[in-house]
Structure formats: C-alpha cells, structure tokens
Simulated assay, not measured.
Amino acid sequence: MGRNLKNAILAILSPLPSITFYLTFLHYNNNNYSSSLWIWCSHNPFLLANLLFFININLFFWIIGLLQSCHWIIDLYWTVIPVMLSHYYATHPFSKPNLWRSNVVILLTWVWSIRLTHSYFRRENWQWGGREDWRFNEMRIQYGKHWWWLSFFVVYVSQQVFLMGICLPMYAVNSIDTLWNSWDSIATLVCLFGIVVVYFADTQLHEFTSKNKILKESGVDTIPNLDSGLWQYSRHPNNFGEQLWWWGLVNFGWNVGHGWTFIGSFVNSMCLAYVTVLVEQRILKQAFRTKSYRMYQKSTSVWVPWFKSFRQEDSKYKNF
C-alpha cells in the first residue's frame, strides 16, 4: 500500500473517536439516560468540544506526527475542524439557535472548507501528507532533540487556541434565538466576499508558481515576484480574503449579542500579521528576488487592496 493511500486512510479515520463519542452521547441524551457523564456533556458544550479536541487532535495527532516524523495532518484538518464544530454546536442539546442563521453559517463554513481543501490539495499536488508546514521544518532544526515534546505545544495546543477561538461565533450563533436581520445579511456578504477574494488570490498564486516551475525546468530565468491580478493591489490578498471570512463570522456573533467572540479573530489576525513578516523576510533572503521585492514592498499595500504608490524613478525595476 502506497504512502499516499496510507495517509489518506489515516486522515479519514483520525476523527472517528470524537465522532463516535459524540454520537453515543446524543443517543443516550435522547433516551434520557441520567449518567453524570452525559449530564456534564449536556451542560458544557464548549468545554466538551475542547476536551475532544485535546484528546483526539492534540494527543492523537501529535503521536501520529512523532511516528511519521512529520506534522502534516494538522494543516489538513484546519479545513475540516470548523465544519465539524459548526455541526457540533448546531446539534448539541444546549443549542437554541435561529435555524435560518445557524444553517446559513453551516453552509458558509462548508463553502469556505471546500475552497480551502481544494487549495490545499492543489498546492500539495494532490498528495496526502506530502510535506509539513515550512515553519515546523525550521523549528525542528532550531530545537533539535527538544522538538519532539515542544511540538506538542507549538503545533497542537496552539492550534487548539486558534481554532477554538476563531470558531467562537459558531458557538454564539447556536446559543441564542434572535430573528434574522439586515446585519446577518451583511455578515453573509462579507463572508462570501472574503471566500471569493481568497479563492482568486490563491488561484493566481498557484498559476504563478506553476509557471515558474516550468520555467525553472526549462532552464529559463524565473519571474521573481507575482505582481498581477489581485497581487497588483495587495502583497497578501489571500490573507486579506481569509481575514474577511473570519471577521464576517464575528459579525454573526456580534449580532446575537456576543460581541466578545471577536477575540479569536483578533488574536488570529495579530498572529497572521507576524507570519506575514516572517514570509517577507524569507522572500528577501532569496537573492534573485531581493531588489524586485523591496520595490514591490514600497509600492504595494500589505493586506488591504489599494492602488500602487509607484515612483517613476523605480520603474526600471518593475518586472511585469
């Protein structure tokens, strides 16, 4: 059995412990079993979700990563966990949602997930577990023999904080029943616009990297920077679109009286800003891109798409 098929089976089977436990809980809850365990699960939906995440994702996925010497599976599950959480919060006995709002959020999350899953596999050449995040690779080298235990906190516990945090609006939407209103419609449009922006940005980036790969294999000089399409107006339009999606979800939470749910998206945005700096530093270390990218930095907005502030005397550096 090939490595790709093994990883595919592993990825599909990995969440089954949590799914099985939750379905068992729903069965016993629907049949009025008064076990202290089921009572606790009924009254603590957020804590239960975190407990399942800690056991099934943090511990189980970490062990898989250690055995394979590659923490690839958590990247894939970034596309899946929000969908699972949206269904979990909607079906939990604690749930008291406006069904229209709840179903719209679930549908939007599915659209977001399908888009991201397609982008993930397209980037990975349709391989399961072909590689892990480049940041994990660098930390593996940096921390050496300590990486095996540090990875539990850096790769998995931190991801729990981020994922549970940015999905807080899904919890809020399913915790109170208020009528759908114009703010929900605005939140829907923001989410959809974000998904569309990041789809086109990722597609343009994929086409750019694919073209450069062909040029490199042909022995021709590669194009140093992507400076067309959405990338003409923003250095990271994919990040901009992704943030629009998450902040659109925050609008749903705010509209049902849970404005505090912004904290997850706020922390995520701050971390993504830091990662953006790391990515650009990494680009500038590539000698053939340095001069062109510095000019690109001077003329192009970081995240929010905007018109270029392009100086005439710099035009000789423009590559497109």
Rank of each mutant, 00 (worst) to 15 (best):
G2N: 08
R3K: 15
N4S: 14
L5A: 14
I12K: 13
P15W: 08
L16C: 04
L16N: 07
T20P: 08
L26F: 06
L26N: 00
H27M: 13
H27E: 12
Y28N: 09
N30I: 00
S34L: 11
S35Y: 11
S36F: 12
L37I: 11
W38A: 11
I39H: 12
I39N: 13
C41L: 08
H43S: 15
H43V: 14
N44P: 04
L47I: 11
A49M: 14
L51R: 13
F53M: 10
F53Y: 12
F54V: 09
N56I: 06
F60H: 15
W62T: 08
G65L: 02
L67F: 02
Q68M: 12
C70M: 15
I73M: 02
I74N: 06
L76K: 01
W78Y: 04
T79W: 03
T79P: 06
V80R: 04
P82Q: 01
H87S: 10
T91Q: 13
F94H: 08
K96T: 02
P97D: 01
W100C: 12
S102A: 12
N103F: 09
L107C: 01
S113E: 06
R115E: 10
S119I: 13
R122P: 04
N125M: 11
W128E: 08
G130Y: 06
R131L: 02
W134T: 07
R135I: 11
F136V: 05
F136H: 12
F136R: 10
R140V: 07
Q142L: 13
Q142C: 10
Y143N: 03
W148D: 10
W148C: 14
V155P: 06
V155N: 02
V157C: 14
S158F: 15
L163M: 15
G165I: 01
P169Q: 15
A172D: 02
V173R: 07
S175A: 08
I176V: 09
W180V: 13
S182D: 05
S182W: 06
S185G: 00
A187S: 00
A187G: 02
V190F: 03
C191N: 10
L192I: 13
V197K: 04
F200P: 00
D202T: 07
L205T: 01
H206R: 13
K216V: 00
D221C: 02
T222V: 15
Q232N: 09
N239G: 07
F240I: 00
E242K: 12
W247P: 05
G248P: 07
L249V: 01
G253Q: 05
F262W: 14
V267P: 00
C271E: 00
L272E: 02
V275L: 12
V275A: 10
V275Q: 06
L278A: 02
E280Y: 05
L284K: 07
Q297C: 10
V304D: 11
V304L: 13
F307K: 11
S309H: 10
E313H: 03
D314S: 13
S315P: 01
K316T: 03
K316R: 03
K318E: 04
N319H: 09
